[in-house]
Amino acid sequence: MTPKRYATLIGLLLLLVAAPLAAAPTPNEILKKVDDVLAPEKVTLKVAMMTHRSNGVEKTYKMMIYKRDTDLVRIEFIYPPVENGRKILRKGDDMWMQMKTLKRPIRIAAKDNFMGGDFNNADVLRLNLARDYDATITSQTADAWQLDLKAKNRSVTYDRAKLWVNKSGFILTKAQYYTLSGKMLRQLELTDIKSFNGHRRPSKMMMRNTISRKTWSVMTMLDMQVGKTLPASMYRPASLSR
């Protein structure tokens, strides 16, 4: 064999060895991909949220979500009309809310319910799985992973979580959130995969309260534009008052 042929053979061998390696991302790489599918770095989302209360009352809100970088999120409510002017901002670990009845925005807590529903503020405003959790793969099938997540620090809303992720397209299909003691607090189901200008993601996210069981909330993605967001100046608390 000529050296050239050797090189080709070695190259082929290397490919054979490397191919499975490339196909098996690390648990943390999976988290990063899941983040990218659900909440890319720059994105504008139009979302409808329905909350079902324990007394049977259902309420629907519509909002625009503008995400920029990993930790800047701004939400503006567009429906119902009475909620016009309600804005929520996340900057790093801090969150603020502004309303027409307030002169200046007030701080809100990450663990508080988002608009009184079953999502909490962090669920909506702080989707950084890769940053907040350490993951391990507990089991996998031909087309899905199951991951166990442990919070990297105490400031993270849920201490533990279990994720079910489809291998094709890194699509999160189910998530269960637990307390440190192992009690399940919430279960998220993601369904109705849709393509928004070529970006595929589940368009329906249903969060169930697994403690009271009488309440749930559903978020429906009405529109998603990857790469589009607001200028950096719009992510300052003072910008909410304008």
Partner: peptide, 18 residues
């Protein structure tokens, strides 16, 4: 002094006044 008061409404939403 001015303060902002947040409360959960009876229907379950979040409201705040100055």
């Amino acid at each position: 002094d001015d303060v902002a008061i947040q409360a959960r409404t009876e229907p379950g939403s979040v409201n705040a006044f100055d």
